[in-house]
Design a protein around this nucleic acid. Structure first.
Lengths: 331, 331
DNA sequence: CTGAAAGCGCTTACAG
DNA sequence: CTGAAAGCGCTTACAG
């Protein structure tokens, strides 16, 4: 590695340190000939600028934190990958911060990154973010919120239209002939679970169908409570919309363990559109979130913050991925 | 956030900057009374040390990179979580670096982190790491390699005993009465796939059974080639050991799509022991890797590097997680 | 035990 | 266009 510093290059090139600095950071400010000479010497010496020293002096680094509740949920893994790629393409390095569903950890991460002069941060909150806490910590105005609906108009957000997603799922099932369509919520307290659940209730109401929300899962037993509830429902629903793909997998597993087949006995639709859903049995029909766009736009919104451009709230359209976990109901 | 610096605290406390520094970084070197006074003033002012400035001066930061090939594979996600927790517990921050299976990206990440004065790095390589390249880049002696067998004795490693894992799976199936046990390899070129495959061949030979290695999957079609091959095998195996859980999921999905049920028609054993395997249908029997230990030990081995202790190569024992994807063969 | 000084590797007004 | 100087926020021998 390079333990050659800017002064080494300056000495070898016979110029002042500031000229070397400019050759890298502000090339237009130095005569072409000088610059080329400096750059060549630098290359020979294997010099590269020290990002730490740069950040300290500029009071701005290229480290951007992405705070997620649970990297073990493939949705956040895919999101991290997409966001990381977008960040890298723009010269940032993503620092992944995992709260393990402890919302209070978020402020800590953001503070730590602020101490490292992060230009901005990206938060994918699981529960309602404590924006006040972030504000108190002074980092509020340098944060973009991912995958949750805007509460505070001064924080830029990028989300997917939950209502539309649930609608897509519901209509697909209705078209197949289902009349009793239940909903399997996610872990209580997570905001996406909440949003989607409300969306489901609205959509069901819009179709003049009673809403059937099956018992929320607890951490240990993702599918069991839901399936218990389903079995106990008087007019047993012929289809289930799950609040996310992982819940859908769990519901299908639990159903299978009790001898009910998908889609023959029940249809199941997930929400997220994970890659993994194409590689499980049955291949999961799911509402696809445009994860790549989510990540890219989050980074873009972050950059806008740096130039004081107006705050934006982007809402992305979901689409439906029809695979094998849905079919017409048994007559 | 804190834009109060060490000099602000020094002024407010009526001491020299160096005394403030010592109060934080080397408390024993300052009189208890002075220290308490300084610390109180610092707290009042909301001061906290600037990690960037500290790293620049000390030439050592607390940022440790974890390089993984694919965060979208839940194995690496679980590994990242475990390693992150272990790192945090010891005062480091994990920086997740994803190569997307481009081995040449590893050296770049390590260089970048070295420029940030990382004390050491952790690499979970997918393909044989180019240790020579790392050496050339000077970072070789500050790297620990995760989840691959040692090639170069000077690099500390922590791995799981593949041979033993495959043995566990094989014997479980043999005990259930299976005689024709095939192997579904992972993506060609990944070292774990290679290790496990060799282990399978040895174990099969040890049992006096012919080894049947089903066609390797390509990225798009994880399960199809394997199932094609399985169907075409003259004496059709009644059980399949997959090189990892994701491959196992895909094989089961493909089997299901073609009307073969697991475990009724074929038993399938995975490798990794992912949490997710408990939430898919059928619940996946799998060789469990002690992922928490893997992460913790990786961090410990990294710390040993800092104090020039002898290099270690830890080999961890896998265990078998018996769930529902295996049963006796149909007679 | 405490202070004064030098310096980690860089950037950026300010002169010229 | 280039140089000389000051300074980002800290640490650590070196004196005392």
């Amino acid at each position: 590695m390079t333990d050659v510093s800017i002064d080494d290059v300056a000495a070898a090139a016979g110029v002042h340190r500031s000229t070397v600095s400019r050759s890298f950071s502000n090339p237009a400010a130095v005569r072409a000939q000088t610059r080329e000479h400096v750059l060549r010497i630098a290359a020979e010496l294997g010099y590269s600028t020290n990002p730490l020293a740069q950040a300290l002096r500029r009071r701005s680094s290229t480290l951007v934190p992405l705070v997620v509740p649970d990297i073990t949920n493939p949705f956040f893994a895919e999101l991290a990958r997409a966001t990381g790629a977008a960040a890298e393409a723009r010269g940032y390095q993503l620092v992944l911060c995992v709260t393990d569903n402890d919302g209070s950890a978020t402020a800590g991460y953001l503070n730590a990154m602020q101490a490292m002069y992060s230009p901005f941060g990206i938060v994918a909150p699981s529960t309602r973010v404590d924006l006040d806490a972030l504000q108190a910590s002074g980092s509020k105005n340098r944060v973009v919120v991912l995958d949750r609906s805007p509460d505070d108009p001064t924080v830029p957000t990028v989300t997917v239209d939950s209502r539309r997603g649930v609608e897509l799922a519901f209509e697909h099932l209705a078209d197949l002939g289902h009349r009793a369509i239940a909903y399997a919520p996610g872990i209580v307290g997570t905001h996406t679970a909440q949003d989607r659940r409300e969306a489901y209730e609205q959509v069901a109401a819009g179709h003049g169908t009673p809403a059937v929300v099956l018992g929320a899962p607890d951490g240990a037993d993702l599918g069991a409570g839901i399936v218990d509830h389903w079995l106990a429902t008087p007019v047993r629903p012929t289809a289930i919309i799950a609040s996310n793909d992982v819940i859908a997998f769990a519901v299908i597993a639990e159903l299978g363990a009790r001898g009910h087949r998908v889609p023959e006995d029940v249809s199941v639709v997930g929400f997220d559109g994970l890659e993994l859903g194409a590689h499980v049995a049955p291949r999961l029909t799911s509402v696809r979130q445009p994860i790549g766009d989510l990540g890219r736009i989050a980074v873009e919104l972050g950059e806008r913050l740096l130039t004081d451009q107006p705050i934006r709230h982007e809402v992305l359209e979901p689409s439906l991925l029809i695979r094998s976990s849905t079919s017409g109901p048994r007559s």
